[in-house]
Design a protein around this nucleic acid. Structure first.
Lengths: 338, 338
DNA sequence: TCTGGCACTCGGCCCGGGTGAGTGCCAGGA
DNA sequence: TCCTGGCACTCACCCGGGCCGAGTGCCAGA
């Protein structure tokens, strides 16, 4: 429906606007891009693009700026993903290689992404749902007080205190620990419930209550803690947002502080492949003037969590997408190694 | 050196400026406060205060605003700490009481402080140096791979992976675990090194290497991890900073993202009692237009960490100090209970 | 020592004209 | 049919001038 040239015009508008942050006019366009036609022709094309809702004028007699719909078309049809330069790739690898534990990996990733894209970075901790159990440990802190420690293959460690009604002997504890581990180690979290279902029955009558308590805490940890954690960084980049500051930045900062909101945002994105949500496509109203680029990452072929950046709709999509994808890949590698 | 009334004038200026965010003139002052003298007299006092460097004019023929030195005098001599209302106290307690683990306590505290003071809140995790050991656990993940889990009285849990050169038998492990715990449980971190010093000698020749490795990892955890963690929140409140936004807010956001900077900041504060650092008193240049109010908190009488808020020098000092102190107290209680 | 009066300063606001980028439309040409 | 150059028009932005008023410093008198 739109001629080849009109698409070209749209691409040029997006590129120029992203670069200059100012409405772009027909004359400037023809000067900066070899479109092969005169400004007048471009004006006609622009009128058509505006008619279709891809671009808009802030006010009469100003240049055009892309609308959310325009960016959408740009991202879907016109823009590729810009691969990083090899020095950049090396820098990423070096930077991430120094990480010592999971917190450090996530922390470094956030800083890296923020620096690379000059935007706000969001990194979700590897999810518990997709991971497998590396080890379950039970400690007796006091006769009727246990601690459950869960170690995952992604390096995450969760611990829970358990108060039992009745004291639990050290031998029973060792027994439970051994049986528990033999059943769940190496298994997926989602499989654990049915694997331990009949475990209480194999214990003495006296201990069954405690065993059940322990198991229910374990299952709670698996399920409830699917409520994920995440880390954000690069909020200082928000100051490059625009000139009409306080109004724009405030709701964004508020949204970013609500990790629940961000987790929902990440949850809405596709599990595999890259997702770009532009402006009003974001449900949360604080983020309607931002775009969110996310991608899943994981230690194997399957994504265990997501990461991405939040920036103005007027962002360098190809570059941002390239950086996000590359970082996700390297983080995946790091996780696989550890 | 300054008469009683001049101090009163300074107090009035600070209060008005904090309330209105606008330079305050002599006439407005006499109208809003019962100083008992005329504007002309106040003008003379203001001239004297300006001479001494406590207040300044942004430009000729404007009202006066307090300088850092003026705020300093205000905080030291003129302002008390405003206690919270009892509904506020109840709200704090209710809010903090719902916390389930240490992360949750710290998270809730940050949100609470940010909300209460309407500023940026910073909460340091309870320090390892001052705390005592609740339990040390050793798990064999693989024949030559151990995991060390350290649980503190403040609810903090640290874990470390240990690769041993030689396999370590389950009995030796149990032995080490038992001896280790009998020596260090309930002890201060600082005392641990000498308490475990002679431990390797009591083991078989074959195991000594591994025992030493384990101990050195334990000591590392104690010492090296004195490098603290912290959590911040309420950055959206920065938008209430001023009208000259981008310039002011940017360096602050940058400083806040550098946890190292914040930890240094907290480290410079007094260990006991409240510390208020005003404007240029803060070493970090991003924070020279902010004031930082901090106080130590702990589960007992001794402070194990600090918390505080970062806000514009033009802040409500009595109210902020009251909120910070109250929150610190309640957090201390919560930690003592758990 | 305080007070009222007075002249002065200067930032903020409003107004009006000039400027220029950008547009829409139209008639003519490939 | 599509592109092009020309032309009139619109409107945000810039700039300078004038008014206003809050606030000051100083001084003489109580």
């Amino acid at each position: 429906m739109l001629s080849e040239r009109r698409l070209e015009v749209l691409r040029a508008i997006v590129q120029d606007y992203v670069g200059t942050e100012e409405p772009v006019g027909s004359k400037a366009l023809t000067e900066r891009h070899q479109l092969g036609v005169s400004p007048a022709t471009v004006r006609n094309d622009m009128a058509a693009l505006e008619e279709e809702g891809f671009i808009a004028q802030p006010h009469t007699s100003a240049g055009r700026i892309p609308t959310d719909k325009g960016y959408r078309l740009f991202v879907d049809k016109l823009a590729g993903v810009k691969p990083l330069s090899s020095p950049e790739r090396r820098a990423i690898q070096n930077f991430l290689d120094g990480a010592v534990d999971l917190d450090d990996v996530v922390g470094r990733t956030v800083r890296l992404l923020a620096q690379l894209t000059r935007q706000v970075a969001v990194v979700q901790y590897p999810s518990l749902t997709r991971s497998t159990v590396r080890h379950v440990e039970l400690l007796a802190l006091a006769p009727a007080r246990l601690m459950l420690v869960l170690i995952t293959d992604t390096g995450r460690v969760e611990q829970r205190l358990i108060d039992c009604q009745t004291p639990f002997s050290e031998t029973s504890l060792a027994d439970l620990r051994a049986r528990l581990n033999s059943r769940v180690v190496g298994r997926r979290f989602t499989d654990v419930p049915q694997l331990v279902q009949d475990l209480p029955e194999s214990f003495e009558q006296d201990d069954r209550g405690t065993v059940s308590t322990v198991l229910s805490v374990l299952l709670e940890t698996l399920v409830e803690e699917t409520e994920e954690r995440l880390m954000i960084g690069g909020t200082a980049n928000l100051t490059r947002f625009g000139h009409d500051f306080p109004l724009t930045i405030r709701p964004v900062l508020e949204a970013l502080e609500e990790h629940v909101v961000l987790l929902k945002l990440l949850g809405e994105a596709k599990d595999s492949g890259m997702t770009v949500r532009i402006g009003h496509e974001n449900a949360h109203e604080g983020l309607t003037s931002t775009s969110v680029v996310t991608v899943g990452y994981g230690s194997g072929d399957e994504a265990v969590a997501k990461l991405g950046v939040v920036g103005p709709t007027r962002m360098d999509y190809p570059g941002t997408m390239g950086a996000v994808r590359a970082v996700a890949r390297y983080v995946g590698q790091i996780l696989a190694e550890s």
